[in-house]
Design a binder for these strands. Structure first.
Ligand SMILES: [Mn+2]
Ligand SMILES: [Mn+2]
Ligand SMILES: [Zn+2]
Ligand SMILES: [Zn+2]
Lengths: 139, 139
DNA sequence: GCCTAATTGCGAGTCACTTGCAGGTGTCAC
DNA sequence: GTGACACCTGCAAGTGACTCGCAATTAGGC
């Protein structure tokens, strides 16, 4: 019969650190490795930052988490389940808004049809100017 | 009468380093700060990397250059004039393809209409899987 | 239980910038 | 022209965000 635990099912060893990293990503929604470490330290104070980085990578390799780029650097991690929205990042005020992936459906199809390119619209944020900043600047 | 030089027109001092950085960005099309520095050193060997970074920032502030993110980190710079295409980055093989901005027109309009968000499709690359890698992986 | 390979913690290292500062240089006012 | 001064540059040191090597620890199969 199957392994009874999602990590073991993926062929990974079940360590407290690994479970806690995965749990933290799920609770936080979006988080930098630093934020994940901070969260994990609430219950496991000794965890090392490099362990967090390594586990995020491992969990990403088996498809349990993914990373996204919301800003000009770094990455944020989220559970693989919630690939539900794309991010609208405002370059002026830095705000991050959400939009359903459907708004990109035409775009994604066009790239598939014209270039055979299979687009993941969630990996990079969508960059631009939010409505608030746009109305402000055109005053 | 007007200043006769684009840098002075923007209110910037005209230094050899600054001119060379701008010229390098224009010649290179897309380039990392490191690549810009390398190019500039061909005619001005002594230029310091921090001078390149500072000038790229200055030139971006006055709108003569812009930066884009093609990969998971770092930025590449290009002349502001050539906002002509978007980049299709393959997460599997790392290749960077081009596509005209028009393919995103519907997407951009949808975001504008539904969210008042003014999208710059060129700031972040479009991430996904290129046709070569996609056919390979589904073999 | 025991063995082995995977994993962790720790310290050091790297990479890509960023900053402080002292000396140099465009610009503008005379 | 010449001088004053703010702006720039080069250099060296400093950061932030990872990344790596290694010895000690531990999970999981037997
Ligand atoms: Mn950017
Ligand atoms: Mn990425
Ligand atoms: Zn905004
Ligand atoms: Zn590819």
């Amino acid at each position: 019969m199957a392994d009874q635990h999602e990590l073991r099912d993926k062929g990974l060893r079940l360590t407290p650190q690994r479970e806690l990293v995965l749990a933290a990503v799920r609770e936080l929604g979006h988080a930098t490795p630093e934020e994940v470490a901070e969260k994990v330290r609430q219950t496991h104070p000794g965890i090392n930052l490099s362990t967090v980085y390594r586990n995020l990578e491992t969990l990403e390799n088996v498809g349990l988490v993914q990373h996204t780029h919301l800003g000009h650097g770094g990455a944020t991690y989220h559970a693989a389940e919630e690939l539900t929205h794309l991010h609208l990042v405002c370059g002026t005020c830095g705000s991050v808004g959400d939009a359903p992936i459907d708004v990109a459906a035409n775009f994604v199809n066009a790239l598939a049809d014209d270039y055979g390119f299979k687009t993941d619209v969630t990996h990079f944020a969508v960059y631009g100017t939010c409505s608030a900043c746009f109305t402000a600047e055109s005053k």
